[in-house]
Design a protein around this nucleic acid. Structure first.
Lengths: 208, 208
DNA sequence: TGTACATCAGTGAACGCGCGTTCACTGATGTAC
DNA sequence: TGTACATCAGTGAACGCGCGTTCACTGATGTAC
């Protein structure tokens, strides 16, 4: 199994006990918080350690550098999207199809709202070409992309390439989730955002 | 007029001559290049100056810090999207409506391909809450959002909130443009990406 | 239940490097007459 | 066309700070018997 950052082993190879696992988690929480508050460019090992009340030396027992901590966070956050699979496994052509789409949009946006800073940093790193972040992002979005892709593929005569359409929908979702707070300024309510996004998604997936 | 970064005045207030304007541009080019090559976290004043063969002190004659240079770049890049307006001013309900959408997608993606690093950095800074970057981003995307929004508003019984739908389409475009290179790995050609994105956009804008 | 030992967990203090930034200065360019 | 002067443009060299990182060490925890 590749190291996904959720290791239970310290960097020097010895296994982590209860206390160690807790410390590691506190470091991760502080990393997320600082990322949220000060942005990526200001994220320093020293500050993370200070925030938890530890010596910087401690940080290096758990992570090789700041990026490693962010990667571990990204991997952890990515595993929260499991509930999307349930919504995607249903048939969206029936009466409650639009409802499924709506819920999916809700869950997706909620997930972003909880992990805004981590997710956008993950995406930046992926865009900058870091393969590890790319892999983590792909793993997180794969169920979504494949689920939507399968629905598009089941349409007749849509003229859409299923995988491309799925990617387009996921793109829309990610960006709306990332920027939806900005839309309020233009007189668009959150409900509008969800409803409209859900409808576009539903139509693309089903043709209805 | 607010300072959008495209100043013709040095930071100490004196006006820029021919030579000065050139130097400023060379610094901007180097900034873009380094952003592309090494990523945001590695972007240093010292390196930018070195890349152009100047003393770091010179940098400070033109920009207060690295962010200011990136902001200036963002503002400049944002002005290249003017050609989109032409495509949006046409009627998309006719026979060549889908063609317009296709071209729009093409132009948009091409613009991203030329300025990948700058645009993603602009978006990150905007997401991190920097108002100046937010303003620059909004200014760049406004014609697009309003153009699409107007088309959606002209539809009957779409059930879509025009501004939210327009934002969703712009979201889709931005993200597809940012990540389209990744899709090739999954057997999706660039042509598929353009065609599919264009169709979704066209349908959302017109109902056709 | 107590003691000894292994290993897990955390740190103080220091090092050096490199980056951001400034200032008093020199050199280049343009223009008035 | 030439010269003087104003201002634009660029720099050398230095300062200090703060960050990343390491290492030899102390303290905490768990477990075998």
């Amino acid at each position: 199994m590749p190291d996904d950052g959720a290791t239970t082993v310290a960097l020097d190879g010895r296994p982590l006990g209860r206390r160690g696992a807790e410390t590691r988690q506190r470091l991760l929480n502080a990393t997320a918080q600082l990322l949220e508050d000060n942005g990526l460019r200001e994220l320093k090992v020293v500050d993370i350690a200070r925030a938890v009340g530890l010596s910087p030396a401690t940080f290096y027992q758990y992570f090789g550098d700041v990026e490693a901590a962010v990667l571990a966070l990204s991997a952890a956050v990515g595993e929260e999207t499991a509930s999307l699979s349930r919504l995607l496994s249903q048939d969206w052509n029936g009466t409650n199809g639009l409802d499924c789409a709506r819920q999916l949009v809700e869950v997706f946006i909620a997930n972003w709202d909880s992990h805004r800073a981590v997710l956008r940093t993950r995406n930046l790193a992926a865009q900058e070409g870091d393969e590890r972040f790319r892999a983590v992002r792909n793993a997180a979005l794969r169920p979504l992309t494949e689920g939507i892709g399968a629905k598009v593929a089941a349409r007749v005569d849509s003229g859409l390439a299923p995988y491309a359409a799925a990617a387009a929908m996921v793109s829309m979702l990610e960006r709306m989730a990332a920027f939806h707070a900005d839309l309020g300024a233009y007189g668009t309510s959150r409900a509008d955002v969800v409803e409209t996004t859900a409808r576009i998604l539903h139509h693309t997936a089903t043709g209805l």
